[in-house]
Amino acid sequence: MSDSMVAEGLTLRYDDRTIVDHLDVTLPEGRITVILGANACGKSTLLRGLARLLSPASGRVMLGGDDVRSFAPKALARRVGFLPQAATAPGGVTVAELVARGRYPHQRLLQQWSPEDADAVNRAMRSTGVAGLRDRPVDELSGGQRQRAWIAMLLAQETPVMLLDEPTTYLDIAHQLEVLELCRRLNREQGRTVVLVLHDLDQACRYADHLVVMREGRVLATGAPEQVMTAGLVAEAFGLEALVQRHPVTGTPMVVPIAPLSSADDEAIA
């Protein structure tokens, strides 16, 4: 069964405001894709559209060749998992209880909990390094621990496609790398398709197999970081003059900011 995701002519709106406009994009199966772009370019909205949390005004999202709107909710939740930005749990919920919520799509009416569910939860907690925190309330954890607990819930859902919206937000640099290394391990060892929205260009180039760069609700460029990340692209997508060099350790593209590019409005005000 294929789990490739493709958006075709996708338009997404909030009320009368168009955020994503007739967008076409393919997310490579079994790879790590990072979606990049300036603030308010439509990154998170696109991710919500892929997860069927927003209904298209036009166009469609295809999963394995089928329109995602054709799936029953539980059937889709067994194939696509979504972690929103800055997810919060109810007060007092423990790590084990949070991770167990990922099993809901697999539960049946007459059997609410099974040995398979317990095994999936335990595997997810071990994979993310939170098994020793299973009885701790989520709201007492550090930022990095909390994010790993949420990713464990996503893992327990056992979906081949994982969509994560800015999973490194509010984390210090050490915990950012911890989360990104975990995402890479899940992809490399378990073959999961991982789609991340990130802001840090260097981290995106380091961890992505495939980049999707957006501007004003449209796709500006797609491809491997070595092909896509150029000074011209940085200028066009982010309004930033920059040098793009090879990282001395990872060998991936590294963006060295120089200065914001002045817009016509800025020049007129000056």
Rank of each mutant, 00 (worst) to 15 (best):
A131E: 14
D172I: 11
R108F: 06
T128A: 01
T94Q: 08
I173T: 10
L155P: 00
L163V: 09
M153P: 03
Q157Y: 05
P160M: 05
M162F: 09
Q157H: 11
P115N: 10
R103Y: 04
G132Y: 13
L155C: 10
A96P: 06
T169D: 09
P105G: 05
Q147P: 09
L110G: 14
L109K: 13
R136Q: 10
V161G: 03
R108T: 07
D172P: 05
Q112P: 14
G92R: 10
Q107A: 11
R134E: 13
R123D: 09
L109V: 15
T168E: 02
E97F: 13
Q157R: 06
Q107K: 08
L163M: 14
S127E: 10
Q112C: 11
L141M: 08
A156I: 00
G144P: 07
L133N: 06
Y170A: 13
R103Q: 06
G129T: 05
Q157V: 06
V130S: 02
Y170I: 06
T159A: 08
M125A: 04
D119P: 06
A124N: 04
L177W: 05
A89R: 02
T128M: 01
R134I: 03
G143P: 12
A100M: 15
Q111W: 15
A120H: 03
A131Q: 11
R101L: 14
D135I: 14
D172F: 08
E140M: 10
H175E: 08
H175I: 02
A174G: 10
M125T: 04
G132Q: 14
Q176S: 12
Q157L: 04
H106V: 05
V130M: 06
A156H: 01
D139T: 09
L177G: 03
E97C: 09
V99I: 09
L110N: 10
